[in-house]
Design a protein around this nucleic acid. Structure first.
Lengths: 146, 146
DNA sequence: ATTCATGCAAACGGTTTGCACGCAT
DNA sequence: ATGCGTGCAAACCGTTTGCATGAAT
């Protein structure tokens, strides 16, 4: 349960001025607890009576990613980028193509694979993106419900 | 070494008219042997004196994907979509962030993982996208060459 | 002859950018 | 006081679409 100053420190660590917009975006990302889009953030903050512009959201997110405080992701067949805080454990998400929910899964199946790539191909792995899609438990029983 | 009629059959199988543009796009995808963008195809065909428009390239690619003849992929930090023929073995690519080459890797580390997801979460996996990035053998020795 | 594919140009949508103003330091 | 951050509106760029023409069946 982080206090408000929490965001302040995060920002200071990146040599970033502690503005209301930036702190609000960090808070929104943290509250979400899963990847959300720039527009999501924009609307969340509007609801919260935080005055902000969409371009600022994009600029702040870019900065956070650049400073290593956040992660950016895109998924095929959705032009919008998703952002998440780089706080929590490394994890992936299952995308239900029925209800479009994202199911977080802790742990990562790729650790050994990356080691193998280093050894076999001399490829120095810096990161990866994994997108698994299919039907969640609820939707697999009624796959034509949409 | 497929003959020209090869493409014709592919198209017929999808109830698609056998046009010069479609056959050329299929050929370009096959020649490439790795994921390429719509613009890549457009330029390749222009060089080859095949008259075609960019929108046709997009429309044909969409159709091919829809018919299951091709795969579409997007990578974070590159807004362009990549397309490849769905001919060959399932495989992934290593993206070098130094020289931006794509290194194909046969095989897939996710088979067991997908089985696990089915069992543990009741999630019916339909497919996945994997993007591994880092430095290739050539670039890891001179990572600041760009 | 009919239906489907193509080319062109204009629209679209998410993201980026230039510039003037405002706020954190 | 200074420099970085923000808002606005316009630009950007990959992609999509409407419509009239053209080609495959």
């Amino acid at each position: 349960m982080p206090c408000e100053g929490h965001y302040k420190d995060l920002l200071k660590g990146g040599n970033l001025k502690n503005t209301r917009q930036r702190a609000s975006i960090l808070k929104a990302l943290e509250n979400a607890g899963q990847p959300i889009t720039a527009e999501d953030i924009y609307l969340l903050l509007k609801d919260d009576k935080v005055s902000i512009s969409l371009s600022t959201v994009y600029r702040v997110l870019d900065t956070l990613v650049e400073k290593g405080l956040a992660l950016k992701n895109t998924m095929t067949d959705n032009p919008k980028a998703f952002y998440e805080l780089k706080n929590h454990e490394h994890r992936h998400h299952l995308l239900c193509v029925g209800c479009h929910k994202m199911l977080p899964v802790d742990g990562c199946p790729l650790k050994d694979y990356e080691k193998l790539l280093e050894e076999k191909f001399g490829f120095s792995v810096k990161g990866h993106k994994l997108e698994v899609f299919g039907y969640c438990e609820g939707c697999r029983e009624k796959p034509h419900s949409t």
